[in-house]
């Protein structure tokens, strides 16, 4: 049995024509982009046949869990003997985080316009195929961390004003 640790084999988002929007491969199963895209096309064909209504399927030696949105489909791929429930959890973490960051609007435009958030979310959830974090609120925090613009002084000000308030509170 393959290791539980390397939960995710690959990840991709395809548009409603089956074209890649973004992808990330954590294994060397597909040696080049052409082969990756051929695989993506196969996955798309199989899932589009059932109008993306399935949530999960098997293809070749992979488990595929997926979720479709208005004009994109998000796929999470694991080895065929992987724990599919674990794989679903990862997909859900990713989707929930994006829902949160994009205010429940997941589609091709929000994914691309917020590409920095999309890719950072992925980076915070999966590291080399290993699940790094699963708690959505933690992930949102690590991705969307938003402090006053480009100035450490501002941060300092915030902290010192907080300190002041705290001291005032104590008084």
């Amino acid at each position: 049995m393959s290791s539980f640790l390397y939960t995710v084999n690959s990840f991709f988002i395809l548009d409603n024509k089956g074209e890649r929007v973004i992808a990330k491969y954590y294994s060397n199963d597909f040696e080049n982009v052409t082969k990756q895209k051929a695989f993506e096309q196969k996955v798309f064909d199989k899932t589009s046949k059932v109008h993306f209504g399935g949530e999960i399927t098997l293809l070749d030696n992979y488990i595929i869990v997926y979720k479709a949105f208005s004009n994109i489909v998000i796929y999470m791929i694991g080895d065929s003997d992987q724990n599919e429930v674990a794989l679903l959890y990862v997909l859900n973490s990713f989707i929930d985080t994006l829902q949160n960051l994009f205010e429940n609007q997941i589609n091709k435009r929000t994914i691309l316009d917020g590409i920095n958030y999309t890719l950072l979310t992925l980076d915070e959830i999966i590291d080399g195929g290993i699940v790094l974090e699963s708690d959505t609120s933690v992930i949102v925090d690590r991705v969307g961390i938003k402090l006053p613009d480009n100035d450490e002084d501002e941060l300092g000000k915030v902290i010192s004003s907080a300190k002041e308030q705290f001291i005032n509170f104590l008084k």
Partner: peptide, 16 residues
């Protein structure tokens, strides 16, 4: 948070 209005151009910027 990222809030974007419907703006076709922004999508094109990335796609192309």
């Amino acid at each position: 948070m990222v809030v974007k209005k419907d703006d076709d151009e922004s999508e094109l910027v990335f796609e192309n």
